[in-house]
Each structure stands twice: as C-alpha cells, then as structure tokens.
C-alpha cells in the first residue's frame, strides 16, 4: 500500500509541477518541487479524488495543519493515516 501511495503522490506532485516523475524522489522536500499555492491546492484535490479522502489543509495556517506537507514522505504518511482513518 505504501508503495502505491508513494507512487501516486509522486505522480500527482510531478504533474502539477510539470516535472518528470524521476525529478521528484521520495525524499524530496516540498520547496524543492516548486509548487505555487494554486498548484498545491490542485495537488491536494487530486489526492482527495484519488484516495477518496478529505485532507484538512488551510493555506492560511500551513504550520498548524494536521496535514504535514514538508516533504513527499510526510505527504505519503499523512495520506496513509487518512486512508486508515477512513477504514476505521
């Protein structure tokens, strides 16, 4: 499951950033990917649609969010957690 989520996260972030997937390694930090705020909103929407989850993220309080977007890894873990919550 983790591998599948990781691949999806990388695919979605790369598509939004107009980068080849190879340019978005699993250990990439979000600022290295270079998404602007609208690109980020679109990426979150794509993740929500892909996994049928609801991501709590408010652009005005990114640090306070329950959804850690600092890196590809942190997004993968957060998506995993939301999927598990949905199943529970």
């Amino acid at each position: 499951m983790t591998a599948e989520i990781e691949a999806a996260v990388i695919g979605i972030l790369a598509r939004q950033a107009l980068l080849p997937e190879a340019a978005v390694p699993p250990d990439a930090r979000m600022e290295e990917i270079g998404l602007d705020s609208l690109g980020m909103a679109e990426a979150l929407f794509a993740l929500e649609e892909r996994f049928d989850i609801s991501i709590p993220f408010n652009a005005n309080a990114p640090d306070a969010a329950q959804f850690d977007m600092t890196s590809v890894q942190s997004v993968v873990q957060a998506v995993e957690r939301l999927i598990a919550q949905k199943a529970a």
């Binding site: 609208l38 979150l44 993220f57 408010n58």
Partner: peptide, 8 residues
Amino acid sequence: EGLRVLSP
C-alpha cells in the same frame, strides 16, 4: 472551499 483559503 477548493481554494483552501476559507476560515473554519
């Protein structure tokens, strides 16, 4: 909502 700029 989709823009994620609204306060709860």
